[in-house]
């Protein structure tokens, strides 16, 4: 099966100023994003993440390179029918209510007339926006804007969802909620591509990550692989005594291995919390 997104030797120059000065926003990037996974695109501000995503969606044209989405050349409307997009710092027609916006997007995305109502309610439910759906978008907070943006991106049940900084400006509780929405999409077998600066959350929700710097791709791989240090090993030992430790070190030294450090493993605050607290009364 073809990749969800395949980018080959993508380069993008922006012309800035009238003297034809060029800014290379994306520099020879090649990426294969497999289907059914959550893929994180990371990098500092201005490294070209959003530009890459916009090119993938055909909103900006590439200077060089080839892109395909779900096996189809990008920028065709049939490829976009199977894709949902939440732009960074989203902004919608503020005189519409949340529900009207999602309905509008469902109509534009080709949801069949008979299915529109159900699709709109599903999307609002998934984004936890059902309650606020009848308020006009002008009255929404940043977190609600991101969530209604998520709803409009998934209303046509796309196979691929592209989220550009879905958690920007959202508080930790809201970010966790968005993390759960991403997880729910993954459970449904969808591919999710997201940009984010919340590295902790990316580590939790993503299967694979790529890191860009100054327009170049500097690393790409499965989260477990890129974070594991294959040259180091951790052994967790119970009932350690000083004598046992000295003997173990000697035995290791006999094979040319060296103990670099001995520490106590740390549990995460979350694990501790879960151990102590039995669960919310509401759950």
């Amino acid at each position: 099966m073809s990749s969800a997104i395949s980018v080959r030797h993508l380069t993008k120059d922006f012309r800035i100023g009238i003297r034809g000065l060029k800014l290379r926003a994306v520099d020879d990037v090649s990426l294969e994003i497999p289907r059914g996974q959550v893929f994180g695109l990371l990098g500092p501000n201005g490294c070209g993440k959003s530009t890459t995503l916009k090119i993938v969606l055909g909103l900006v044209s590439a200077t060089a390179g080839e892109i395909s989405i779900l096996g189809e050349p990008s920028a065709t409307s049939s490829a976009r029918r199977r894709t949902g997009f939440l732009p960074e710092a989203p902004y919608f027609h503020k005189f519409l209510s949340g529900r009207e916006l999602v309905r509008y997007c469902a109509q534009l995305s080709g949801v069949a007339d008979a299915d529109v109502d159900a699709a709109v309610e599903d999307a609002l439910g998934l984004a936890a926006m059902t309650e606020a759906a009848d308020r006009t978008i002008g009255t929404y907070s940043k977190g609600m804007l991101q969530r209604i943006g998520f709803a409009q991106a998934v209303v046509h049940d796309p196979e691929l969802v592209i989220l550009d900084e879905p958690t920007a400006g959202v508080d930790p509780v809201g970010s966790a909620a968005i993390g759960r929405m991403i997880h729910a999409m993954r459970e449904k077998g969808k591919t999710v591509v997201l940009c984010s600066h919340l590295l902790g959350q990316v580590e939790q929700v993503c299967d694979r990550v790529a890191i860009m710097d100054r327009g170049k791709l500097v690393l790409e791989g499965a989260v477990d692989d890129v974070l594991a240090r294959r040259d180091r090993h951790v052994m967790t030992v119970e009932a350690m005594t000083p004598a046992a430790r000295a003997a173990a070190e000697a035995a290791l030294a006999a094979h040319g291995a060296k103990v670099a450090s001995v520490t106590h493993p740390r549990r995460s605050l979350e694990d501790l919390f879960r151990e102590l607290v039995t669960g919310s009364r509401d759950a």
């Binding site: 916009k54 969606l57 909103l59 409307s77 049939s78 976009r80 029918r81 894709t83 997009f85 732009p87 710092a89 989203p90 902004y91 919608f92 027609h93 997007c105 534009l108 995305s109 080709g110 943006g149 409009q152």
Partner: peptide, 14 residues
């Protein structure tokens, strides 16, 4: 300017 076009044109809309 409000970038609503960004959302709309990412849909299957020519």
């Amino acid at each position: 300017d409000n970038r609503t076009a960004l959302t709309l044109l990412a849909k299957p809309l020519s």
